[in-house]
């Protein structure tokens, strides 16, 4: 692993730098932020100054503070959601591929039905029925997202499943769990990791768009997507404020994708 990191290309290192920076900021948010997350400390939409590094938001809270805490909420949420969606999606996908037949049919058709709805509308529906708590938010997005993961892991596993080493394991009498965990998973890892990075970004953007519609994290909690929404009005007055959280989203997305590109490269077996 360490050797792999040493060989990583510059782009991947920049990506890792960006992600690590974000994680550090999120982790040490209370230490870094000069003000409280929700305290009103200045005028509405003040410009940047020595007091407010990024200026203030639409009700006079320090934008830098909000950004720092926002990193925490947004990244943690996206991370948990992605992990969940991958656990659901890939285990179901692997089971479908290995078991085949009836199990595969049933699972795949259910997933098809969920996928038939536009994601955003589906999420809006569930969230407006169940209310927008953090738990429901996480589970809703995780389940919706796991459909894509299911598709991918099923396809990847089907390719591996026909290999003779899986047949050899079956002939040995190995159970489903062993085949999935020992034979398929290690070989399916590279594309799944690459997909993980991508999904992570999408979740991130999805939460942002839900926040934008008012169904994401509820105020006064800060998250980057929500901050874009809250401050969207400022754009009409030529004030830069909403661009900062939008830029942070873009920044992290680019960072994650730089790493993902590297993984994709590795998993395709090219080493230059």
């Amino acid at each position: 692993m360490l050797k792999l990191l040493q060989q990583s290309p510059l782009s991947a290192r920049i990506g890792m730098g960006i992600v690590i920076l974000n994680i550090l900021v999120a982790g040490f948010a209370p230490l870094i932020a000069p003000y409280g997350e929700t305290s009103v400390v200045g005028d509405v939409w003040e410009s940047f100054s020595a007091r407010f590094y990024f200026g203030t938001d639409h009700i006079g809270r320090d934008l830098f503070t909000r950004m720092v805490f926002g990193a925490r909420n947004t990244i943690a949420l996206a991370f948990i959601t992605t992990i969940l969606s991958f656990s659901f999606g890939s285990s179901l996908g692997f089971i479908a591929a290995v078991k085949g037949g009836w199990t595969d049919q049933a699972l795949s058709r259910i997933i098809d039905i969920i996928m038939a709805f536009p994601t955003l509308i589906f999420a809006l529906m569930i969230l407006s029925v169940l209310g927008s708590s953090i738990t429901t938010l996480i589970f809703t997005i995780a389940i919706l997202d796991s459909t894509r993961v299911y598709r991918l892991s099923r396809a990847v596993a089907m390719d591996i499943e026909v290999m003779e080493f899986v047949e050899a394991a079956r002939l040995r009498g190995e159970g489903l769990w062993w085949i999935i965990r020992q034979e398929i998973l290690p070989n399916a890892m590279p594309p799944l990791i690459a997909e993980f990075g991508l999904r992570f970004c999408f979740v991130f953007l999805f939460i942002a768009s839900l926040s934008f519609l008012g169904l994401g994290l509820q105020p006064p909690l800060s998250d980057w997507g929500g901050m874009v929404r809250e401050n969207a009005g400022a754009i009409t007055f030529g004030i830069y404020i909403p661009l900062i959280p939008a830029g942070a989203i873009a920044f992290l997305t680019v960072g994650v994708n730089l790493i993902v590109d590297w993984f994709l490269h590795l998993s395709s077996g090219l080493h230059e």
Partner: peptide, 13 residues
């Protein structure tokens, strides 16, 4: 059983 293609008969990981 032993297979024709030893490449695919052994898990590369």
């Amino acid at each position: 059983m032993i297979y024709q293609m030893p490449d695919t008969a052994l898990n590369p990981k």
